[in-house]
Simulated scan of single mutants.
Amino acid sequence: MKIILIGGSGFVGTRLIDKLLKIPDVEVLNIDKKKSEKYPQLTRIGNVMDWQTLAHHSKGGDVVVLLAAEHRDDISPVSLYYDINVEGMRNTLKAMEANNIKRLVFTSSVAVYGLDKDNPNEDAAIAPFNDYGKSKWQAEQVLHVWHRNHPDWDINIIRPTVIFGEGNRGNVYNLLKQIASGKFMMIGKGNNKKSMSYIGNVVAFIWFLIVRGKTGYQVYNYVDKPDFTTNDLVHHTGQILGKKIPTVRIPYWLGMLGGYGFDVLASITRKKLNISSVRVKKFCAVTQFSSSKAMASGFVPPYTMEEGLRNMLENEF
């Protein structure tokens, strides 16, 4: 089996390649706009805005895993979300069709549901609150129309929640770094639940869908349970690292006021800052999602949430 990763030079792609290379009779090729630091020999330079280059490099592939995305919440101009996430999907499908590849695994996002929802499953209302979520939903709609016209294709969509793990430098890493430093500032009460996904389980689920996924058009949330509150994360971090974590608490309104101040500062300096009103809002929101469909598929996560958190904390801090 030859597996083509598109956008596999980042965190998820690198860990997925780690896993795939251990599996007999699997060939892996990564197409990305930048070389993979760990696997440059497996990488071919290509951009999702150029379908002909994608088609050239993906010849002979059996399955495509589309990971390429603009996902930071401070991308400018916002049109880049739609160029990469939506037009990039169209170009990927065009390249696949040129090579008669009819199997796709696409990483979308739970951002399509919006914030503060009541544990939505895959049938819940779609209400993205930012351009990232809107562009991911539009990419899914492109896929839905495509499958209606190509019913012999097998398409699996994964909507993961925030992914954490060793080597990640995203929002969870920054949060755990602050907690571990002993200089953590809690905005709000900290009782809001946060669905999270450990990287070892996410890549295992992608492989599960490649070899055992249902045919046709399938959509899966991916979340590892149980859902931790921010207070839980503080408690587990202190317990794993063997230290008492002092926590300064400030009210939500004051945190949002500070976030707006950083928005103004970022606009004046034209710099991307780690604090913004959007990030404060996301930090304090309930981001809890159902993963019952994925867990009913026969997939068994190889790691518990506690094991994943321990692996990351002991490796990073």
Rank of each mutant, 00 (worst) to 15 (best):
T269A: 07
N274I: 10
Y260C: 09
K189M: 08
T161S: 12
I158W: 10
T215L: 11
S135H: 02
I163L: 14
W153K: 12
G200D: 06
K214I: 03
T229C: 05
T237R: 02
Y260D: 03
T230H: 05
K183M: 02
Q178K: 07
H147V: 10
A180T: 04
F205V: 15
I210K: 00
S276T: 14
H147Y: 15
Q141A: 11
L233W: 02
V248T: 09
M196H: 01
E166P: 15
G167I: 14
K189Y: 04
H235I: 15
R249F: 00
Y222F: 06
R212M: 09
L233D: 02
A139S: 06
T269C: 06
I187H: 01
S267C: 12
L257S: 05
H144T: 14
W153H: 08
K271F: 03
G190K: 13
Q141V: 09
E140R: 05
V162M: 13
S195Y: 06
R212A: 13
Y217C: 08
G216K: 11
K134R: 12
K271V: 06
W146A: 14
G216P: 04
A266P: 06
W153V: 10
G165T: 15
L233K: 05
G258P: 01
K177W: 04
W253I: 15
R169I: 14
I179E: 00
I158T: 09
F228E: 00
N192R: 13
H147R: 11
I199V: 14
K272F: 03
D232R: 07
G238D: 09
H236V: 15
T161W: 07
